[in-house]
C-alpha cells in the first residue's frame, strides 16, 4: 500500500478516536463540576487542558477558565488542533482523499459527521445540550468504528486503521489516568484514605468502565484497583494493556521493510503491560510509570511514521 494512503488512513482513525476521547474528557469534567468539592474545581477544569497539553494555547485565547470557555476551546475551536471540531474535520479530509481505499459506508458516515459538526451551533454544545453533544460524538465514533469493522477488507488499510485507533486510545487512557489520579490524590499519603466517591465514579465513567469495575471487583472503589483496571485489565477494552495488545496484533500483520524498531517497541510495550504488577508500579510511582509509557508510545508513533508512512 502507498505510504501516503496508509498515513491518511492511520491518521483518520487516530483523529476520530481522539475526538471521542475529548468528548469523554469534557463529559466527565462537566459532571465533576456538579459534585466536586469547591477546592478541586479549578483543578478539575484544568485537567482537560493538561491531558491535551493545550493549557498555554487556551490561556492565549481565554482570560478565565470556565466550563463554557473550556468546552468552546476543546470542542468547537477551529484553530485549536486538539479540538473535536478540528479532529473531525481532519478525519473527514483524510477519508475524502482515500475514498478509493475505504468503503463508501465509511466515507459517508464520516462525511455526515462532519456536515453535522459544521452545522452545530455554539449554544447547542456549551449549554444544557453539552451532554447530548458529547454523547453524539461518542456515538459517531462508535458508528464509524463499527462500519469500519463491518465493511472493510482485512488488508493493509484495515491494519493501519486499527493501529491508529488503538495507539491513540492507549495514549488517551494513559493521559486521563495520569491527570485525574493526580487531581484526585494530591499526595501519596491519601492513598487508601477518604475518597470522593463521585470523583472516582466519574473517572471510571469517562472510560466506560464504572460497571466493569463493579463486575470485576464486587467492591468499593479503591484507587489502586482503578489504576489496575485502566492500566492492566485486558478484558477492559479501553485499558492500556488491551489497547497495546491490539496495537501489537495490528502491527504484526503489516508487511514492512526496516520496521524492526517499530515492531520491537510495540512488543516491548505489550509485554510491559501484560506482565506487570500493580504494586510494583505504585512503588515506583504511578505518574513516573505513565510518563514512561506515554514517552514510549510517542516514540512508537514516530517509528511507525518512519517505517511505513514515509516520514523521514
Amino acid at each position: 500500500m502507498l505510504s501516503r494512503a496508509a498515513a491518511r488512513i492511520y491518521w483518520m482513525s487516530r483523529q476520530i478516536e481522539r475526538a471521542e476521547n475529548l468528548a469523554r474528557i469534557l463529559g466527565v469534567t462537566s459532571n465533576l463540576l456538579l459534585f466536586g468539592k469547591p477546592e478541586v474545581q479549578e483543578q478539575n477544569l484544568l485537567a482537560p487542558l493538561s491531558i491535551t497539553g493545550a493549557a498555554e494555547a487556551f490561556f492565549a485565547r481565554h482570560r478565565a477558565l470556565t466550563l463554557p470557555a473550556l468546552i468552546t476551546f476543546l470542542a468547537l475551536d477551529e484553530d485549536n488542533h486538539s479540538s473535536i471540531y478540528y479532529c473531525i474535520r481532519m478525519a473527514r479530509e483524510n477519508a475524502h482523499a482515500m475514498r478509493g481505499q475505504i468503503t463508501s459506508e465509511m466515507w459517508e458516515s464520516l462525511n455526515a459527521t462532519w456536515i453535522e459538526m459544521r452545522a452545530m451551533r455554539h449554544e447547542q454544545v456549551t449549554g444544557a445540550g453539552a451532554t447530548r453533544f458529547f454523547d453524539w460524538v461518542k456515538e459517531r465514533s462508535h458508528l464509524f468504528r463499527g462500519i469500519t469493522y463491518g465493511t472493510i477488507v482485512r488488508g493493509e488499510a484495515f491494519n493501519f486503521s486499527r493501529l491508529g485507533t488503538f495507539l491513540e486510545r492507549a495514549d488517551n487512557t494513559a493521559r486521563i489516568l495520569d491527570v485525574k489520579y493526580h487531581v484526585l490524590l494530591p499526595s501519596v499519603e491519601d492513598v487508601g484514605g477518604a475518597l470522593d466517591y463521585y470523583q472516582w465514579a466519574a473517572l471510571l465513567r469517562s472510560v466506560s468502565s464504572f460497571s466493569t469495575y463493579r463486575t470485576l471487583y464486587h467492591d468499593q472503589i479503591y484507587p489502586i484497583r482503578v489504576a489496575e483496571l485502566l492500566l492492566l485489565e485486558r478484558r477492559m477494552p479501553r485499558s492500556i494493556a488491551a489497547c497495546l495488545e491490539q496495537v501489537r496484533e495490528a502491527i504484526g500483520k503489516i508487511e514492512g521493510q526496516n520496521d524492526q524498531a517499530a515492531k520491537r517497541l510495540a512488543w516491548e510495550l505489550y509485554a510491559r503491560l501484560t506482565y506487570a504488577d500493580v504494586k510494583e508500579i505504585f512503588q515506583g510511582g504511578l505518574h513516573e510509570y505513565l510518563t514512561a509509557c506515554l514517552t514510549d508510545m510517542d516514540e512508537l508513533g514516530h517509528r511507525i511514521g518512519r517505517a511505513y508512512l514515509g516520514v523521514v
Partner: peptide
C-alpha cells in the same frame, strides 16, 4: 510525491518499503 528515483530506477513509497 509517492514516487522517487534511486540509482536510475523509479520506485513508489509503500508501507512495505
Amino acid at each position: 510525491q509517492d514516487l522517487l528515483v534511486k540509482d536510475g530506477f523509479v520506485y513508489m513509497r509503500t508501507t512495505g518499503g
